[in-house]
Design a protein around this nucleic acid. Sequence first.
RNA 1: GCCGAGGUGGCAGAACGGUUAUGCGUCCGCCUGCAAAGCGGAUUAAUAAGGGUUCAAUUCCCUUCCUCGGCUCCA
Length: 466
Amino acid sequence: MSLKLYNTLTGVKEVFTAENKNVKMYSCGPTVYAPPHIGNYRSFTVADVLKRFLEYTGYNVKHVMNITDIDDKTIRESRRLGFSLKEFTDKYIQVFFQGLKTLNIKPADIYPRATENIEDMLRLTKHLLEKGYAYVKAGSVYYDISKFRDYGKLSKINLENIKEYSTVDSDEYGKDDPRDFALLKAASREEIEHGVYYYSEWGPVRPGWHIECSVMSMKYLGERIDIHTGGVDLIFPHHENEIAQSEAYTGGRVVRYWVHSEHLTVNGRKMSKSEGNYYTLEDLLKEYEPGALRYFLISAHYKRKLDLTSDTIRNAVNNYSKLKETYQRAVHFSKSLTEKSLQTINRKLIEFQNSFKTAMNDDLNTPLALQVLHKLAKYINNRVSERNLQLVEAVLNIFIELSNVLGLKFSDKTPILPAKIRELIFKREQARLVKNWAEADQIRELLKSEGVILVDTPSGVRVILE
RNA sequence: GCCGAGGUGGCAGAACGGUUAUGCGUCCGCCUGCAAAGCGGAUUAAUAAGGGUUCAAUUCCCUUCCUCGGCUCCA
């Protein structure tokens, strides 16, 4: 039983292997010119689930995620708002990190920034020029795709079509062929005024987009990396160009498995600001809790489109609540025990674990894995109902273990209640003892109006804060 | 135009040759002082359409229709 991953390069699911159980993984990160939208977070979440599952199954993962802090948009926006490029991007890098934390996405080991690796980009460019894969024109350096025999192997793109449909104005950029792409762009006058340029032997330049990933993946992970992740829209041209650069440089295959996650759509359409269906994480957090959003993001298989609508998000919220409810119910029960329960693992639990792994092994089938979690939740509820001391803790541990692989967290914090509230709860318990239901219900209603929900259980009253 | 993904119940969403899971929603029971949760049951022809292969197709093949995406910055 081992992990199978769909590899965009080969177009089939392949058995995943890694030397000595060490995995080198590179993920395309954000361009920090605005807060990431929820679709961006989908791809980061997919990478996170992959990483967590690999770690769960005994791999050591070294994970690098780049941060694009210099490109057309970051330059334009920082300039428009009157900030230096660094001031501007630093702000959004912090927003991005905060978002990762909110969604319980484990940090990568390294987050290299494009602007901190310029020297290496210049060096790679020089190599490519020397090897005849690039040419200089009007202060820019372009990659000559006709020199790279395998160009198009990742995206299976038809080169003729690019030519025909290309909207790039070849005169404007002075490329030999409109399909060629820039390794280094000659800095414009505006960029020079704004201080966004680097000295090079070809004049003042700034990096093109694709070169940073070639440089940073090889620099931080080496010339042969195991997994490269990103959204489907990066397959062409970004990753295609990355392959052209890296492989021209090393002469061999650099990335073993290309993993691409599908888009998140909103009401069936791709998010775009002009259509008004653009959601940042912050927007959604106004209405939904982080755990529910994470649940939503993994509720569809990563290679399928995930549609955000009021119904689908509602579904996720309800499903997540169900798991959370089960968790909290079990925690409350196990805490009420006076004696420590025996940690028994029965065959049933092993079965849950195995079906979970089987689901995840099949190209990270998270919906199926969630199904296992729901079955486990039902199993837990049954054990709690029968007040099975032996099993509840053990089952709960498995539940936590598997939830953790998916990055789902359920708060078990016992709320710290103000004395006033505690008194009321106590008063209500007294009333219930003497079967004064009217008073008990009255107190319950009162607390409810203050966002404190009381649930009576055989093992005492449970307090839920809204 | 070319390339790709997909069309499964009220809503999501798995399975992929032989009981159509799982959850949500709705309804009914059980439980509970009541409530909530939980448990049990129901939701009466759910696999876009039409052909074909097969003992058997949702699953494989062909055709048609529809949706979305890529070919330009994009997760």
